[in-house]
Simulated scan of single mutants.
Amino acid sequence: MSRQAAERTGRRGETIAAWWLRLHGWKIVGPRVRTPVGEVDLVARRGRTVAFIEVKTRRTEAELDLSIDRRRLVRVAQAAEMLGHRYARQQDFIRIDVILIRPRAWPRHITNVWHG
């Protein structure tokens, strides 16, 4: 897959993930937020919870299972640490989530995946 095709697939997955979150009561407060240490695909809020979300889109369940690793989660956690003051209030709960997208399946939302 070319870099451009992968970029289109990733953006499409992020759009699906954003709609999935909205349907479940979340408000998207930051799509594709860049920091010096990396990018957060989506920042979402529901009540007092702010989630920094990594979205992965793959063709198969097996590919999805291999798409998230410690290195990627560290990058998201570092970016979330840099962005926390922008999106979260002092009393808010901050977490790192992952949403996995594949064709012909509901998105899989895995909550609170990072425990430092």
Rank of each mutant, 00 (worst) to 15 (best):
A44L: 01
P36Q: 06
I101P: 06
E39F: 01
R22T: 06
N112C: 12
R45T: 02
R8D: 11
A5L: 15
P103F: 11
S67V: 06
I28L: 10
T49W: 10
S2L: 13
V33P: 07
W106V: 03
M82L: 15
H24G: 04
V113F: 09
Q90G: 05
V43E: 00
V98A: 02
G38S: 07
V50K: 00
R108D: 09
E54M: 05
D92V: 11
R95I: 08
E81V: 07
N112V: 07
I28S: 01
L21Y: 02
I110C: 09
M82A: 15
V37S: 04
R86G: 00
I96V: 15
L100G: 03
E54W: 02
G38A: 03
T35Y: 07
H85G: 12
A88Q: 03
D97V: 01
I96T: 06
I16R: 10
R86E: 14
E14P: 08
I16T: 13
P103Q: 05
R3W: 12
I110Y: 00
T111A: 10
G84W: 04
I101L: 09
L64G: 08
F52Y: 09
A6E: 12
F93T: 15
G47C: 10
V74D: 14
R8I: 10
R108H: 02
I53M: 03
D92N: 10
Q4K: 15
R75S: 12
G30A: 05
W26Y: 07
I16K: 05
R11Y: 09
W106E: 14
G10T: 01
H109V: 03
I99E: 02
